[in-house]
Design a protein around this nucleic acid. Structure first.
Lengths: 209, 209
DNA sequence: TGTACATCAGTGAACGCGCGTTCACTGATGTAC
DNA sequence: TGTACATCAGTGAACGCGCGTTCACTGATGTAC
């Protein structure tokens, strides 16, 4: 079934990935709208013109980074939200903490470019987040608590959860880049995030009162 | 009492404001980290070197823009949150809608640079938002509903409201920059935001159950 | 398996251009007497 | 009020530098027979 790539294709993929990795690293300290093509090729160790074999522009590269950063996250979010009861919030907060610890640069990139200066990238992120919200809505709908809710209100709630997850992720990120990252600080963020989600869940339970 | 500025000081202030205005306009389509000094001076109509008479760098100018964008907003937020009862949410959503309509570029700038690539600007925004949260906490504390709440939980709730306001502001902004801005779209954003805040308020009412 | 040709990822020179910063300057405004 | 000097916001030339993009190229890989 699986088609083994030729040597040429395999090498091309490898270089492409090197571009993505190098760009992500460079974007820890600047925005995509100021990222230079030559800057990236220098970091990869290829000629500037090699860039055009893979991307039309840095904006194009940015869109590829959005897919890399968020594309593989859908199943994880889905199964986490599918968890029932009080466990759900705990697991969600742990998922976020672990993901930020494992892929800080990806998280920073998304937070930064969500409202950044490059339109196609903003759109790619908005579309991905809308997908997350829709998936969360679908999971919430399976919940017994969702009885009596209309689709609009469920989607409204789903957006609230997704936005809350993003805010929490960016707070975890700040604990990482603080001058002296401490486990205590991370615990505080986790606790606040947990309470905020609990408060939202409480509101949910009494929505139809 | 009021000291009239000399001609020289008055002219300097005017030029400084021209820098801020020109930069804000240029930042509608890019991030601060890619904003060029010469780009700004060209827009103002002065020599590049004039820039240094007012700012050390574009980052410095960015910090000044943060103060301009958020500094005057504190009293308005305070009085809005001070409103009691069901009116509070309606007024808050209207305040946000009006502010975004009146100062779209300021709102975009804050949303963009909150997680942008320029550290001193990020810090200035974070400090301002922390002030808002503290002010909201102080207002909420006056509320009869706050009886039995500890300070930590009140601040947690205040942050939830502030983040929610920012998200709503950026959604209103998107309705403005959509290819065909419609009043209907704006109404939809207002309605969703209102419901989300109501849901949070519901959670608040049952927090101590 | 071997050969002849096609493909195409990466090269390297060259281009015109705008960048941030320096420096000594100018001339209107401010100040001291 | 008038004069002599100080201040300083804005000037304009000059600098070295890195940028994005073009182009014809090379040589390893792929393909047809």
């Amino acid at each position: 079934m699986s088609h083994t790539l030729g040597i040429r294709q395999a090498q091309k993929q490898k270089t492409r990935q090197a571009f993505l990795d190098a760009a992500l690293a460079l974007l820890e300290e600047q925005s995509l709208s100021s990222l230079g093509l030559r800057e990236v090729t220098r970091a990869v160790g290829v000629a500037p013109t090699a860039f055009y074999r893979h991307f039309r522009s840095t904006a194009d590269l940015g869109v590829a980074l959005v897919d890399e950063a968020l594309g593989s996250l859908h199943p994880m979010v889905r199964t986490t939200v599918a968890t029932a009861g009080a466990e759900r919030i705990t697991r969600a907060v742990r998922l976020i903490a672990d993901h930020v610890a494992a892929h800080p640069a990806h998280v920073r990139f998304i937070a930064r470019e969500r409202h950044g200066g490059v339109q196609p990238v903003r759109e790619a992120i908005r579309d991905q987040l809308a997908r997350f919200a829709e998936e969360v809505r679908a999971e919430l709908a399976k919940d017994p608590e969702a009885a009596g809710w209309n689709e609009d209100d469920l989607l409204m709630l789903a957006h609230l959860y997704v936005d809350q997850m993003l805010i929490t992720a960016s707070l975890f990120l700040e604990t990482l880049e603080s001058p002296e990252p401490s486990e205590a600080e991370r615990q505080r963020v986790a606790q606040v995030a947990t309470r905020q989600m609990r408060l939202i869940s409480l509101g949910r339970q009494h929505w139809l009162d």
